[in-house]
Design a binder for these strands. Structure first.
Lengths: 214, 214, 214, 214
DNA sequence: TATGAATGAGAATTCATTCAT
DNA sequence: CATGAATGAATTCTCATTCAT
């Protein structure tokens, strides 16, 4: 077959990106083959090279895109207030929502750093660091203002991020727990964790206290 | 050459296991080649097959060994008391210590589940589940006795495990933070997280409040 | 280099098939290596996998092709008559000619059944059985009509086929015996063997009675 | 384990030979591995080298042994008479019996000539030639005395040998046809084939004329 | 823009063989 | 006589990548 009438580069590139994220999340970057990627997209392996100069570059671009997406969206959605509790609440909400919505991207970004070439690794980690800094800064500020009580803001930030990001490992969109409920539970856990003087009378967590999964 | 003088099966197997864990942690299972593994051990690639029937079986055996190690050691070291706070404190201590001591095994066990054949995957996950259940059980018991306050013991267990396990990602044996201090900080974070009626006047965390990593 | 100018799938596949038959006939299927096959064809070993999914599938396809070739050609060339002697004569002629013309295919088909996977083995043997049945049927019919005298048509068919097929083992295109003469001698032997009321005064065999190969 | 008390070289060697013939017949010489052979015999692969200097030498020895066995036994069993018909009858009987009794040896000897090193090939073929010559000589003598009518004794010898040897391909010890009956049928086919002035009133073939396998 | 034929390097794995014990 | 640890070369097969069309 020659060229499909109306075939369209932008559409093809997008299809490749989507399929690549899915495939890498499923199999891992090293285990994914361009052959299979091409098969899923419905093109020949060679065609991928119109859009990405190499398998490795494809990974970096996907990861950078994801991290830029996170940073930009946070920029847009973060609350105007400077109340640490409100800011933390917003961050948890943002993080849990984006990390369940874009589960595969998050998973890939967490698993495949090893597969990056050193220079790419540095770029990606720098962006990730900026994201971590958002939380560190919120915690640090909260500690200073007496809103939170943790021995070390950076350690606490790592702990909280690990906790929050871990949600992607087990949460299923179609599982027992609704996403709203999920956010509520994690918000409470985080608040307790950082020693927020909690008003844990928030309704969402309250009326479920008797529920118990598994 | 047929056989290096004094060569010894048990020793060789051990050397392969050690090197394999290190190499998989470094590069990832798929990216690791048996050639390189053999080179590090100082044998020919084919010799690995005296000890493992395939690359895939090697991975399972390493993972199962690691999980069995964790379960057995917890069995031996867990405290006799049934006070939830004491049990949780012991678990955090055990987990953080074993997860910093056997960092690479932990890392591999968390990253390479994907690379397992389905049947092996099930075996490994079953063991991991038993480990998770230890913490779930402690939390559930604590909630019932009023020692902890979390909306859902299982969700909290996942959250706490993610938090604790994440320590392996950034903690360096030779870094700023001592292991003792590390355990102290995580203990406090976990206690707060599960809403333990805290006696957080513990000295270890106190006199460091002004310190700040990174 | 990506692609030799003017390279052409159909041509390459044919070259591989030809070379494969020759090489398997020479060395045996197990002893043949894809490296050597590729070298003879003038491509890289990996390129063979564009045309055959595995070494094993290559063998089946070659054997099935050969047997289909035999069956189809017999279908086209078999005589319209129902006189058993004429039919047998035509079969011997067809068999000896095709088995000297396609010596290597025949040889491979006889030697390499063992190397087939069980499922493939069944397919190939089923086709071979259809070929054997052609002769069995001719003999059976001839026995019923009183044209041949053998105790058991199926046993005789095996005996005659073995005899005829054996010709490929020793006959050389450039040897003492012409192909025409060869067919004549085998026709006579077969006719005698099945007890045909022979008119063995056929000239072809006559004027050579004093010749002696080897 | 050290050495089994009373373990015995001659016994081991014999076990290896037996197993080797069986395994080569099953899989083919190239496809057989010394590992599997050793496993069947119950020794370690290295131990085989006490008895055979290499895999290749093992094959030659097995083939030479087999051919020597055939020649010696014929020497002992051949009839004293010089009547061509009697001699041919005895040969057919001997050949069919030995080729069904030692099926696997025969099969191996026919299939694996290719796997021999050139020098070994020559030795084996020379012995086989001596065996073929026995039949050629009988036929030639019979033609001269007017007992047989074939255009060329050597061609007929090849044809008859192929026919007779083919029996090993399909005959099953536990099948429909008894061995006695088998010999009788082949004797008759051969006699007819060489144009022996037949007294085909021999009882063995007669009273079965109505039988029909398959 | 896309194909499909081909490459070449390297992967896991197998195997005959060796030899200290 | 036999073992078992090890070798080294080779095997099938895979894969990222190239490029004429």
């Amino acid at each position: 077959m020659a060229r499909t009438t109306g075939s369209d580069g932008a559409r093809t590139e997008d299809a490749i990106r989507q399929a690549a994220i899915a495939l890498i999340a499923e199999r891992g970057f090293e285990a994914m083959t361009l052959r299979e990627l091409a098969r899923r997209v419905g093109v020949q392996p060679g065609s991928i090279y119109r859009y990405f100069p190499s398998k490795g570059r494809m990974l970096v671009e996907l990861l950078l895109d994801h991290l830029r997406f996170l940073l930009e969206h946070w920029q847009r959605e973060r609350p105007g207030t400077d109340d640490p509790v409100e800011r933390l609440r917003a961050f948890v909400d943002f993080h849990v929502r984006s990390h369940t919505l874009r589960r595969r991207e998050v998973f890939v970004a967490n698993m495949e750093l090893r597969s990056l070439a050193p220079a790419d690794y540095r770029k990606v980690v720098a962006l990730r660091r900026r994201y971590e800094d958002i939380l560190t800064e919120i915690l640090r500020d909260g500690v200073e203002r007496g809103a939170f009580r943790v021995p070390d803001a950076r350690v606490a930030a790592f702990a909280v991020l690990a906790m929050l990001t871990g949600v992607g490992t087990w949460f299923r969109e179609d599982g027992r727990l609704g996403k709203h409920e999920l956010v509520a539970q994690y918000t409470r856990l985080v608040m307790q964790c950082v020693g927020a003087a909690h008003d844990d009378t928030a309704p969402a967590t309250r009326h479920r206290q008797h529920r118990r999964p598994d």
